[in-house]
């Protein structure tokens, strides 16, 4: 059996056991602690901590979520550190980060794949346990033993059958995403989750806007499925989806299935030359530019859920917060950058 180490939190009574092959962040979250985090992949910096005592091994010393200066001062990222001894750490905590569904590590089999666009596919996996997660959350997928792990959001909603659907975009030259393309049906992967704080809040009584680019469509679909199928949630639902050209735009109403009738879809492509070549009749521009015109109401009236490329997220947040005075609390996204 794997050795375990004890991780204690400075300024609190809390401590937890962390296996020698587990990250401090995920072990803590799995045991119900509200350790601060967002992306789980070393990019956002939310889980930075001070190592007060003990020793850790850093899986990703080049991670962009920590500056060289911070590293010199002994700061580390909890999502990238595995313990080599008992440790005492100083890390931010909050109830927001305590997952409603305890994350767990388990195996799942690939049961189906279908292409959505030339470079994106919908992958369905089945686990022995029920698929429990909040709409909009993500899981860490390891496609094969020894392969690297990446975060992918679920595009479906929780279910007793144990079906986990993910949208994976093949990133040319990527270390992980190309591996999924060649997986045969029945292949086993490891799923670790659910994680993420950009999940659907059905108790917030505002119309919902989902904004996505690329494989960021997955959590937005999940949220639209959840909101659309929830009979007590009667507010309007909107999806804005941006791609470079028409070929990047999947059949969103088709993916929404039974929820499609309740959702207004607003796709847009950003490259005019691709739009022209491929006979696109719809909107041309960046998705955020279309929010005021399509929503027809003050933008501060809506609750926003977003996932997509960093430039898209930043442009949307700037526009909503600075120009339209939308409170940051109404905008939900996990910062994978």
């Amino acid at each position: 059996m794997n050795p375990h180490f004890e991780i204690s939190l400075a300024g609190s009574e809390s401590s937890f056991a962390c296996a020698a092959d587990d990250t401090i962040l995920r072990a803590g979250l799995r045991q119900g602690l509200g350790l601060a985090y967002e992306c789980n992949t070393g990019a956002c910096g939310s889980c930075k901590f001070d190592l007060l005592e003990g020793e850790v091994f850093d899986l990703y010393p080049e991670a962009s979520g920590l500056r060289a200066k911070e590293r010199e001062k002994g700061k580390r990222l909890a999502c990238q550190c595995v313990p080599k001894a008992d440790c005492r750490i100083k890390i931010r905590t909050g109830d927001l980060y305590r997952s409603m569904v305890r994350p767990a590590r388990f195996r799942a089999r690939l049961i189906s794949y279908r292409a959505l666009t030339p470079d994106m596919g919908l992958f369905s996996f089945k686990s022995a346990c029920p698929a429990e997660f909040a709409a909009g959350q993500y899981a860490m997928l390891t496609p094969a033993a020894g392969a690297m792990t990446r975060a992918y959001s679920m595009s479906n909603t929780e279910n007793a059958e144990g079906v986990w659907e993910f949208i994976i975009r093949a990133v040319p030259g990527g270390a992980v995403s190309p591996l999924f393309g060649g997986l045969p049906e029945g292949h086993e992967v490891e799923i670790d989750g659910p994680f993420g704080v950009a999940y659907f809040r059905p108790q917030i009584d505002r119309p919902v806007v989902g904004i996505a680019g690329g494989s960021g469509l997955a959590p937005v679909l999940s949220i639209m499925h959840a909101a659309g199928m929830d009979e007590s949630f009667t507010r309007d639902l909107h999806v804005f989806y941006g791609g470079r050209g028409p070929a990047d735009i999947p059949d969103i109403p088709g993916l929404l299935g039974d929820a499609a009738a309740k959702v207004s879809c607003h796709p847009a492509v950003s490259m005019p030359e691709l739009a022209q070549q491929q006979g696109w009749q719809g909107d041309v521009g960046f998705v955020h530019e279309f929010l005021p015109e399509k929503l027809k109401q003050p933008l501060a009236d809506f609750e926003y859920y977003m996932a997509g490329p960093p430039a898209m997220i930043e442009a949307v947040v700037r526009m909503l917060v600075v120009e339209h005075k939308v409170a940051m609390e109404q905008i939900h996204f996990d910062r994978f950058f």
């Binding site: 930043e314 947040v317 700037r318 917060v321 600075v322 940051m328 910062r335």
Partner: peptide, 9 residues
């Protein structure tokens, strides 16, 4: 003034 993301305000 906020100069870099994620701060915008």
């Amino acid at each position: 003034k906020a100069l870099t993301f994620p701060a915008v305000e």
